[in-house]
Structures are given as structure tokens and as C-alpha cells.
Design a binder for these strands. Sequence first.
DNA 1: CTGAAAGCGCTTACAG
DNA 2: CTGAAAGCGCTTACAG
Lengths: 353, 353
Amino acid sequence: MMKKNILTGVKEIARRANVSIGTVDRVIHNRTGVSETTKSNILAIMKELDYQPNILARRLASKKLLKFATLIPSMSKETEFWKAPLKGIEQAESEIKQYGIEIEKYFYDQNDKNSFVTQSKKILETEIDGLLVAPIFIEESLEFAKSCNQLKIPQVFINSDIPNESRLSYIGPDLFQSGYLSARLTNYALPESSKILIINISKGIDAYHHLLEKEEGFRAYFKNNKKNNEIIKIDIKQTDYDSIAIRISETLALNPDIKALFVTNSRVFSVAQYLEKSGIKDILLVGYDFLENSIEYLEKDIIAFLICQKPQEQAYKGIMSLYQKLVLNTEVENTYYMPIDIITKENYKFYRN
Amino acid sequence: MMKKNILTGVKEIARRANVSIGTVDRVIHNRTGVSETTKSNILAIMKELDYQPNILARRLASKKLLKFATLIPSMSKETEFWKAPLKGIEQAESEIKQYGIEIEKYFYDQNDKNSFVTQSKKILETEIDGLLVAPIFIEESLEFAKSCNQLKIPQVFINSDIPNESRLSYIGPDLFQSGYLSARLTNYALPESSKILIINISKGIDAYHHLLEKEEGFRAYFKNNKKNNEIIKIDIKQTDYDSIAIRISETLALNPDIKALFVTNSRVFSVAQYLEKSGIKDILLVGYDFLENSIEYLEKDIIAFLICQKPQEQAYKGIMSLYQKLVLNTEVENTYYMPIDIITKENYKFYRN
DNA sequence: CTGAAAGCGCTTACAG
DNA sequence: CTGAAAGCGCTTACAG
């Protein structure tokens, strides 16, 4: 079957308006140098025809290159989590690089505010058209965002949001609600009067708001549902296994009624490791993120539930949002909350992180 | 920034091979009329250059139209489920129609085998390049698949699979495993010795295998975990509310120890309606699918969990698989199991069905 | 068996 | 303020 041979697009508009396609192109892109009369005439015709530009042709003809920068924590054994976002970035990159998009990847140390600042300054020295960032440090991120806004660089945030009206989009979890759901799952199998322990494991005091929001959601569930379980909470600032094990064993010794542990981030695998080594079997363990280590304990029935939010997809969508905005010129959702996924031993094999 | 001015693509290949781009095009598409020597020469150069065709240019230049057909159950009040796949098809359509893809949508009555046969014959009378089908009726679907294979029409199955080596791809749930997970969730909050009731609600005897697979998965969990809960099962063939209510109330009267209900499809909302009307509060209810009706009962704490598998995305991905295969000529996964999503009152607002 | 030319729907200089 | 031409990387007839 062959396409019918009717003029469409710029040519048809030009024909109707009795101008050249060059002029049509000028008004499509709102460039200067067109008289008001021809401009409004062309605009009217475009509207009448419900003109939709052919993106294929546009990209093919355009010689513009676009540069995106990404700034996320570097990946280490301790922060395996950040592997997934990086994969998402690379996935998006491979899809759109043939359309003239280049991505420069920057990384910072999530325990070191200064590294974030250093890297963000580096980015500002280059010329970029769009930015994806995981804004772990609130103040520094706001500062960075301000500079970007001055340079009119659209920014997408992933993983956690910061209060910022001017960003193009946030793509990530609703942290409070994920904590709320965790509480529901925890409560579900809990004996009436048992105590619950919330465990925040994090070196950086700065990245802490992130965990706090989950904790608040968790507490809110028990409050809203008038459950009177006592909730204890500990902060663990030393993230090596031994420190974690000691703190937990002390706490459990003092509070033998604790029947559930809620770990507010991916360090849940360390807690699982402790439970395994100590042979503790009657404590419910709920935590975050789809890391290999944790899956292992899910498999062993030591972790009951993991809450996950598709970090790879967050980053993928983030890049694609920039692409949509800058190349396709389509609308982008200002806030895109990821689904709050519940992972268990029975469904983890089907999960796409 | 401007692209560098180096020859790439067919032109560069042509230059190196000392032939015209027409000839290069012939070997790229494996058309006849090229001498073996030039052919292998061009092939070698393509390999050396790691030639990647520019899809944009290809679609732009090509005047070929592709026609896809879709065959899924029609949507009614009773089968609201099928709204989502239709939306997925339309979503994909709107994305790829500008690239010359047309989609013809066919529907059948999921309670009527014959309507499936009639529609599939209709499709075979038209000329199509690809097919998406929800193969609810095994034998008839196999027959249809056979005809398609003879005509070399690639087929994608969604929602449920049929044993068929020749299909391009299956995109949908692992039914057995979704039942297995349901059992885990059911067992989770269940008093030790309580009975469990499995409820299959379906008019069509033919579409039944679908539900059975979930049931088997469900039973397998209890068996594998050496739980001795008695499991009762009823089949309800009259799908109006009254019939359902009567059957369940009879069963519960005979078995007062039943503390959990597992409904193997979206009709869980009717069961919820019954529980609500009867004022029964201490029975755990688990079922399938993200329907408005069911969400309402999730909200009211009558349904505890819904298992969902993104029906819209299944269909969307299905169409895109055909597009990828036929237009982009890229690999397509033979079997793509959807994640098994757990929906609760606390996370449904973030779900993307 | 092969080449030269036109064209897909745009954008980009350049010229006036 | 506007137009004519070249070109993006392909495909498609057509001619030989």
C-alpha cells in the first residue's frame, strides 16, 4: 500500500498561505522576521489543518546537538542502589543518541556534600541543554537549581524531591506514602501488643530527611488506625556490619517484645544478616530496595517485604522527559510518582527494577 | 553545535565499495539483483563500519504502510477489565501512527467461542502485517495461530498464553506464580487452623484454564510450605450478584471456619459486595485486577489485596513489539512476564494499571 | 546486475 | 520581511 499523494505539512501550509515553506518554518518556530499579517494568516491555517510536525523529519533535518548532564551518587559496594539509575540513564542514552543527544555523566559521593558542590560547579562550566539530578542534599541542590534556572536549563529530579517550583519534573517515590504502606504490611502480621523498631542507617546527617519522611509515613499509619503498638527508633551512623549488629542486639536485649523491624533504606540487608547470624526467626523484617543482597534474604524468608520504586525506570523516564521537552516539545508531568511496589519471595523474579 | 561533516551511512558504504547507494540499499534489505562479489564486499564494509540504519530516515523515506489487527474481548460492565488493554492499544497507536502504522481493532465476546472464530476469520480476510490477540479460547486460538503462521503474520499474545512455538511474543502474567503469591499474602495474616475458600467465577467453561492455573499456584504455596489449612473450592457459573451471594452464603454457613477467600479473577468485587452487605468483617479477601469497583472495596478495607498485572501496559507493549519487529527490525523477547503487582489501600493511588 | 534521480517533511544557511 | 536551494539518510521507481 502506498501513501496517498496529498500535500501535507509545511508544503500544504505554504501553498495555502501563498508563501514559501521557509516562512512557514519561521512562524512554526516563532522566529522573528515575519510580518504580522502573514504570521497570523499562517497560524490560522496551521490551526485549521491541525498541523502536527513530523518529528522524524525534524530530527533528520536538524543539525542541532543537545547535551544533557546527569548528576547522581556514584556506585559503590555500599551504594549498589545507584547502579540501577545509571542503567536507566544508559538505556535512555542508547535510544536517543542517534537523534543527536549526548549525555555527560557526573557522580558525587553521597556521604560528602562537598563532592556534590564540586560536581555541580563542573557541570555549570560546560554548556548543557538539560539536567537530571538526584538532589540528596537539600540546600546544595537548591543552590544548584537556582544557577540552572538563571541559565534556563530545565532540570529533572529523581529519587527524592526538593521544594522547587521551577524544576521541569520530579520522578520518584512519594516517600511518606511508602512508609505508610510499609506500616500496613508490618501491622498485618503483627501480634496485638508487640513493639516495633524503626531503624535508620545512614552516615550522612544531610541525606537524612529522606529517611525521616518514610518514618513519618510509617508512624502515621499506626496513628491513623489507632494502633497502640509501641514504636521505638534508633539511628545508626556507623554503617559497617559490626556496628549495626551491636546496636540492634543491644536494642533487642532491652526490648524483648520487639516483633517487627522497619529499616528505612536498602541497608535492610545488613539487618537481615544480623537476624540470620543470631538465629532470630520470629521477627518480621521490612525494608527498601531491590538489591541482590536483600533478595537473598527474601529468598531465605528473613526479609518479609521489600518496598521498591523502580530506580532504573526513574532515571530512564527522567532522561526521556528532557528529550520530550527539548526535542519533541511535548508536555511533561510536573510530578510523576512511581508506583510503590511490594516485593516478596514469591514475586521478585518478575520484578523489573 | 553542529554535526561534523563526515559521510556516514549508505553514502559512506557506497563510497568505500565504489558502488551507488542504490546497490548498498539492495544488500541492506537483502534484495536480489546484486552480484555475489559486490554483495559480500558491501557486507564486509557494513560490518567494519558497524552500520546502524537511521530509522528516522528509513521511515521518512519509506512509503510502506503497515497494518496491525488486534483481537481482544469487548468491554462491558461485566468485563470492564478489557478497557485497559484497549487503552494500551490506543496509546501505542497514537504514538506510531505517524510512522505509517494502522491498527484495525476487532472484539469478541469472552463468553462466546463462536464470536472469537467469526472475528478471527474476518481478520484473515483482510491483509495485515501483524496481530495482537488475547487467546482466551485455547483450541480456537491455536487454529487461528496456525493460519497466521501460514501467512507469515507475526503474532503477539497478551493476558494469557497458549502453547505455541511460533508466536513472536507473549506479554502477560505468569498465572501460576500470581496464585502462589496470593497464597502467601493470604496465609500471612491467617489464623493457624482456619479454612480457605477458593472461588472461581466464570460463565465460560472454555476460558476456565486461565483461572485453574492461578488456583494451582495458590494450592502449591500451601503444599510447599506444609501448611495444613483445609482448602475448599467452589465454581460459580452464574455471574450475577444474587447467584454469587447465595453460593457464598451457603458455603460459609456450612464452613464457619473459613477465614479467607481467594477469588481468581476480577469478580472479587461481587464477593466484596456480599461481605459488605452481610456485615462480615473477619474474613480476609484477596482477588485480582484494578477495577474501579474493587478499588472501592479496597478503600473500605473489605478487600485486603488485589493482584494486578498492568493490562494496559501488556497491550501497549504488545503493539510496540510488533512495531519493533516489523519496523525497527530489532529483537523481541519471546516471553515477557509482567511484574506481579500487589495493590493495597495504601498504594493504589500510585498504581499505573 | 547497477546507477542516477526524485522525494519523504523538515531545517539551514544564503541571497535579496 | 521573504524565497529558493541544498541537505538530513534513507527508499523508490525508472532506465539501462
